[in-house]
Design a protein around this nucleic acid. Sequence first.
DNA 1: CTGAGGCATCGACAGGCGTCAATCCGTGGT
DNA 2: ACCACGGATTGACGCCTGTCGATGCCTCAG
Lengths: 114, 114
Amino acid sequence: MDDGAGVRCSAGPLTGGMSSRAAAELAGRLKALADPARLRLLSLIADSPSGAACVCDLTGPLGLSQPTVSHHLKVLVDAGFLAREKRGVWAWYSAQPDTLATVLAELPGAAARV
Amino acid sequence: MDDGAGVRCSAGPLTGGMSSRAAAELAGRLKALADPARLRLLSLIADSPSGAACVCDLTGPLGLSQPTVSHHLKVLVDAGFLAREKRGVWAWYSAQPDTLATVLAELPGAAARV
DNA sequence: CTGAGGCATCGACAGGCGTCAATCCGTGGT
DNA sequence: ACCACGGATTGACGCCTGTCGATGCCTCAG
């Protein structure tokens, strides 16, 4: 006897959770954050006195080539974590805190904390 | 000539920011989160009535094969986001909210909001 | 107009990651 | 003891991504 349906590990199929679209979108934003170079870029810019920095000041501390830094900055801008402003010859990048707050609010388990 | 003393874009080299070790560690945790399948797993487990779920109940909603789901669960356990408990034949996974809170606290810009 | 410098883009390469089919391990029921 | 079933592991494959050198664009100085 299989004791009826009692051998199932749970009462029924799990439902709810986030939609696959929402998961893909959130994962995209998190992928932009999930890189050591990009985390250091965000940290450097956030710690900067003026709250903004240009590429030439970021290549040194990271130890990466200028094209690589430019690539990472583009990823962060596309994800909405940074804003780009062209001031003469230089490109200034500044943080966009709202985007980070939005991502944090959508994390599973974060809602319970708010 | 006009070496150095000429037109710099900022006052000096940016210092501070997070260390490369801290960045690599945080990026590792974020990489564990930055996947649609894993976000849905966390979401499903968090939304589960008992707060825990076994593999056989997770493969269905995700539409992925059992080995793939097992792989993702292992990644989440290794990163500290889930705990694994063997109950007889079944393996039950439950959320570990503290790990998520730790990660959020270390994000650049999150400290400024607190 | 011409030169120089900051920054973005392109092409290419190496490494990592997600996915599945096949297989193996452990547990529990008969 | 044997078999059935849940779950983890392995190996392989394809895609994505981080990195660099080379190059092109744009802006300012002279």
